[in-house]
Design a binder for these strands. Structure first.
Lengths: 158, 158
DNA sequence: TTGATTCCCATGTTTTCCCATGCTATACCA
DNA sequence: TGGTATAGCATGGGAAAACATGGGAATCAA
């Protein structure tokens, strides 16, 4: 990893969840965490049956945006912070690189014995294998439908 | 991450209130208090039947901000802060990590034998279990309705 | 004294830590 | 080029530490 600090969660990796609920965090993800001296934070996705994760640093920035006193009593903010921070939890990994996902999260994502990590740039998701296969197919179909309207990036196209 | 560490109250944790009125402060919360060398301050929430808590440090900052923003429209905020400071109290935890909530606070939140700690980033709340279950469901529904207009977390896109 | 608060110890459970094993990919050597 | 050594990684299991919680003794106030 370079000094430029581009940190992206990428790739799709399936790891086993053992009897204790432990899962190896993909080593690439671990490298990001170490480099940023932060921690991984996970919470239930608002829109899909999956676990969502990001760096604590990202959530901290959100908290900073919200903490200034002018908004101290705002109701919308109140509801949002309850939902996000009330659900999120820090997950430190042990010396072998594993985190222990909570019952609540595993249940929400319908994960039992295998967890699929899906990179999303600044965030990542953790899926049940079957659900992810279905979701990926759906997304691909969706994108294909919209294809004519997608602008090529950097002038490349095919 | 920058020099400053990140301190966020997160997760939702249910702890028992014993016969003496003692409750374990979640260990993550305790870690924040120790790290910042501050104290926990609690007061009755102005908007919900729950106890609200934060670091004394945060209230201190709020006080400073209020001093410096005495604009024409600040009267309401002024009154609100009066309410909070009039109600707030410091709660130190003992060697096993427990605090003793006052009758006034417990009554306001309708807490008897179980207290649910809900993280809110820089703040947290303490709820009666049933009330929190109801409130969480309400908020989820509310936020889902507003979802299209919500900015993504931390300004990142996904 | 009575009631309340603080401090300390005991216990069961959960979580974290550490060591061992086997697999896989990359590098190395003939 | 093919085979082997090496390092990193995923995974399993047991030991140790941390945590929530209950109860008793000591301290303080009215």
């Amino acid at each position: 990893m370079t000094a430029g600090k581009t940190f992206l969660f990428m790739d799709t990796i399936a790891n086993k969840v053992d009897a204790k609920g432990r899962v190896s965090l993909p080593s690439d993800y671990r490298a990001i965490v170490k480099e940023l001296s932060t921690d991984i934070v996970c919470y239930r996705s608002l829109s899909s049956p999956c676990i969502e994760g990001c760096t604590e640093e990202l959530l901290d920035r959100l908290a900073s945006d919200m903490e200034n006193s002018l908004d101290f009593f705002s109701q919308t903010q109140d509801e949002l912070t309850n939902l996000i921070f009330g659900d999120a939890r820090r997950f430190a990994f042990d010396s072998t690189g594993r985190i222990m996902l909570s019952e609540k999260l595993l249940k929400h994502a319908e994960i039992t014995d295998t967890a699929v990590f899906v990179g999303k740039g600044r965030k990542f998701q953790i899926w049940n294998p079957e659900n992810w296969a279905r979701e990926e197919a759906r997304i691909r179909a969706e994108v294909f439908k919209k294809r004519p309207s997608l602008k090529p990036v950097g002038g490349q196209n095919d």
